[in-house]
Nucleic acid binder design. Structure first.
Lengths: 204, 204, 204, 204
DNA sequence: TATGAATGAGGGTTCATTCAT
DNA sequence: GATGAATGAACCCTCATTCAT
């Protein structure tokens, strides 16, 4: 199989993805502060020096990790919003999926770390914040859909979206592995907070 | 003004408080992982070595910082719960106060960081989690009060308390200084999520 | 000359040996308590951080240093014991060789320091003590050989070995470079202490 | 009781002695490397700063400690040498006393540390070595007495004294607390090494 | 490209010594 | 004199990054 620029580029992308996935795994286990390039390289089965072939710095790797995760999340929530389905069910699915994946926990931590850490370059912080804000839109859409059908509370849909996402993220952060708060968490109960007041009355 | 043991002790306490306050400021800016003893000492105007006159290690300082903040918060929310006042108003107050103080922002970040950071020793993490859980109780009490008067949603009060606190903390984390998400946050709207569905209808 | 794993391993071993030799030199001069990684690195012409590429900690380096020295000594004294030679001559040789080499002086100092220094972790101390005790055996063998031929004093051979080794080590310690005690030291005279009382003249 | 210069001087001497004794105790327990001014002060029930009222530096304290110990030892061994007693018995007593006191262990370690450590100022090292050499004299005297009575081996008495003292010190160093070499040590057996060859024959 | 040794800055911590009270 | 807080240098160790092979 002869080398060609296209195939090289493909391999490069594969390696980058491998490194990013490995990074997320390690961070999920060790926490962001204890994750070194060494750890990531080992988890990916590459050498330390080789990591720098694909990412110019640790910051760039983390930044790229966030970019991809946020983009993926944005796509997935946009698709969800566009589904022809009960809005409340959509919220429930978001909630359940988010709380289920352990990697989301790591991702949320990285997100917060980057957004609250002044050591992170301003442009990266800005980019992360912008994507976060943009990703509120599809959630706000779901809220709007629910409001139209009278299933979801009135009020600024963007605000509701922010509350919903903040609640989920807040809960995610409580789930530090091994130190769980002894209170059950239930997607249905969470979604219920956003249901319109007279839902039941109506139904009855 | 000659020295005496009492005055010495007083000065000691003052210095400890100064260091803890400085630490809070710095951590809020840099994040816990990047906050060095050097930073704290500089912020407090002391030498690095002198920090160890008051705290035997960085861990102890952080642990003490959290202990104090959580204890203070616990007392304040307990007092709030015991007030003879509209439960919804109590929630509103909690919410407003929490989102108003910048120190709460720093404190929330530290709290989350400690609970999610493997660099923090396990026993400290456990202690923090335990206090966090204990501090849910007064909030659950408020929920119970509201449920008895029909003002607050039915369901496990402890769970509702966890949701409420998580939501506030989640929102707090979004408020990174300088990179605010362009969505207004309103305590009344937040409390509304926890109101009983047919409150108004009933009352009317 | 391209790199390959074998050659890498070889270089690694060379570097380790270089570091251990440098450490021995420095410790001999400064004493174990005042020898820093910095000193060792400088003596070896390497950077401080690089030392940790080869040894995971200062303790491990010291421990390895002792392990090698004691193992080498054990082999050499075992070989000596097995020689087909006059036992008294064997003792004389041990004595002369030991007092002659300056590295033995350094080694003795380290040995004693480790065994008497609470800064050294307990397990390392135990290992050193165990090897020291084991290395008494070959010397005791020599004593037994001499006792069989009536050339060496009666009594517990292990005890005699301990006395012999302690005497040599005690003398070694007196030989601090530049501050020598003005008393001549003579291997023959030392060995004479262990000769049987009425050996030759009387028996013949 | 009014102050007067004489009494002040007395108190000063008492405090110095207290500090030196405390230092020896602590060193015997912790080892020289782990003994800090703080430890010594605490053991003596004084404050850290106050130690510097009596000794200008840690080095001076250690140096003074050695000076006193060596002087005391010198006096005691001189008295022993002048006793009208069997020379072999004298050696036996020296040996037994030396190996019995735990503080002698600490003292021997300090002695060796100072003599083999180039960080110690040259003049202190020289002084220690000189006193050590001087203290060999009384031991040599005992040897001479024994040689005159035919009880002790022939040869340079000073050399024999050095061997005897080195042997005792070597054995002392083996007795690191908690890591004892499993070989019994017996003063009688040690003295026997220095007995004249045909002692028994003669006696019989 | 791939490797991992090498570097150097920085972090936590200790401790002899000084100094204001 | 007595106290213990304050200082600053030094120590061990880690880790992002570079570089020779």
């Amino acid at each position: 199989m002869p080398r060609n620029p296209e195939r090289d580029q493909q391999l490069r992308e594969q390696r980058k993805k491998l490194l990013l996935d490995s990074a997320l795994q390690v961070i999920a286990k060790r926490g962001i502060g204890l994750t070194s390039i060494q750890d990531i390289a080992k988890a990916a089965g590459l050498s330390v020096g080789n990591v720098y072939t694909y990412f110019s710095s640790k910051d760039e790797l983390f930044s790229e990790l966030l970019r991809r995760a946020q983009t993926e999340y944005g796509i997935s929530v946009t698709l969800l919003a566009e589904l022809d389905e009960d809005p409340l069910l959509k919220l429930r699915r978001m909630c359940a999926e988010w709380l289920a994946l352990e990697t989301n926990w790591a991702f949320t931590i990285i997100l917060q770390t980057v957004r609250t850490n002044e050591m992170v370059p301003a442009d990266i912080r800005q980019a992360v914040t912008d994507r976060f804000t943009a990703n509120l839109e599809p959630v706000a859409d779901i809220m709007r859909q629910g409001q139209r059908s009278g299933q979801i509370l009135n009020g600024d849909p963007l605000q509701l979206a922010l509350y919903f996402v903040s609640l989920i993220q807040g809960l995610t952060l409580q789930q530090a592995p091994g130190y769980v708060i002894p209170v059950p968490v239930n997607p249905d109960d969470i979604v219920r907070l956003f249901e319109a007041k007279n839902t039941h009355a109506k139904n009855i």
